[in-house]
Design a protein around this nucleic acid. Structure first.
Lengths: 213, 213
DNA sequence: CTTTTTATAGACCAGTGAGTCTATACAATC
DNA sequence: GATTGTATAGACTCACTGGTCTATAAAAAG
């Protein structure tokens, strides 16, 4: 169907525009009009595809997550050991392309709306759920179940916290500080583990190959 | 000055109303009108005291933080050792009264605006700065400076992350899970430290006396 | 080649929200 | 007691925003 193709193309285009607008103008500054302007089309057209603003932002949330999800997958399929899978999740979350104040701004703007919009809530729950699941599959092979749960939560909470700080003020936390913090956490949780460090090194390398600069 | 007294009273009242509105309606749902209604006065009156909405929300941010700051102080002045000071910061941040989804919602809503409003940014920077300072004074006596810096950051980032999760969805993270996570972090960072555990126990006790329930 | 569907835009509408203007009650000051 | 300043509210304005209605061009279908 040609219709469906164009549909997908446009929704992706406009979701992206919405995400970018969000990151530059904040939630209160994001209007359908501005998103349309950024995409170079009329407001009517954007509404034609999404029906209403809420759904547009919903798709923006999905859009923002899709990139990250791809990055995680790309590392995950190249992982051979549990430790490598853990570091795939970590590294992907602080990839140079994604872990930027701009993107963190947009993410923050959407997060703030989550409590008031069940639809966003479902999406975010799914996102967290997937991260937890990715971590658990790996960690269960490295620790007892209960500890694995705790640790998985600690890792993902720390990731969220670092993203939050990244979005908060420009000069705040960058990739290096973030990774250093994650390493402080990991080294404290699992001290003296050559396997862990080897995995970290390998994933780091893979990531810098996949995504140079 | 009687004038100043009333002024203080009203600004406090309205800041509180704004904070509460924020927590129930989110940022997009918070209008000057609604805040006024909640305070039982006219919109004009609220505007009379704050001039504009931005300054109202700015005061709401300060208001929300003031409570927390008092809680930290109350524990801090009763602390005798560095470890107790560290746990004062931690416990205060997860006090039963403050660490609630409602308050976390309001806090999230304001955070999302920080990147777009220099004034909020300054306030938030000051808040983070004070937390860092509180932690550093204590941690410097427990580790070398560089490690103290790292650890202080780790603790405050984890606190932020847990607040974020608390605000995200109702059934998410509660005080118990949060404190358990903090303890996982602390135990990993400083294993086998009876002094630390004693301090934790003492602050926990003081806190439950000051703030029963 | 006509008919129907899809894509796109322009004009418009209704609602809302921030902020102002005007007015009144009230307190303080002289 | 007159005057000045403060607190408060009601009516109003102006800008803007989400969303709809109408129209047209383009494409698909027949």
């Amino acid at each position: 169907m040609k219709r469906n193709k164009l549909w997908r193309l446009r929704t992706e285009e406009y979701s992206k525009a919405a995400f970018e607008t969000l990151s530059e103008e904040g939630l209160s500054g994001t209007t359908v009009e501005k998103v349309a302007k950024r995409a170079g089309v009329s407001k009517t057209n954007v509404l034609h595809y999404f029906g209403n603003k809420a759904r547009l932002l919903e798709m923006a949330l999905r859009y923002g997550n899709a990139d990250l999800a791809r990055e995680v997958s790309a590392l995950l399929i190249r992982s051979n050991t549990p430790w490598e899978r853990v570091y795939s999740v970590i590294e992907a979350n602080f990839s140079r392309q994604f872990f930027t104040p701009k993107i963190a701004h947009a993410w923050l703007s959407l997060l703030a709306e989550i409590p008031y919009n069940p639809s966003y809530q479902r999406i975010q729950t799914a996102i967290h759920q997937r991260m937890r699941s990715n971590l658990m599959h790996a960690l269960e092979q490295l620790a007892e179940r209960e500890r694995a749960e705790e640790v998985a939560l600690a890792i993902s909470v720390m990731i969220d916290g670092l993203w939050l700080r990244c979005g908060l003020h420009e000069g705040g936390i960058g990739r290096d500080t973030a990774l250093q913090q994650m390493e402080l956490l990991m080294e404290s949780l699992f001290p003296n583990s050559p396997e862990r460090l080897a995995a970290k090194a390998r994933i780091d390398e893979i990531q810098s190959i996949l995504n140079p600069g």
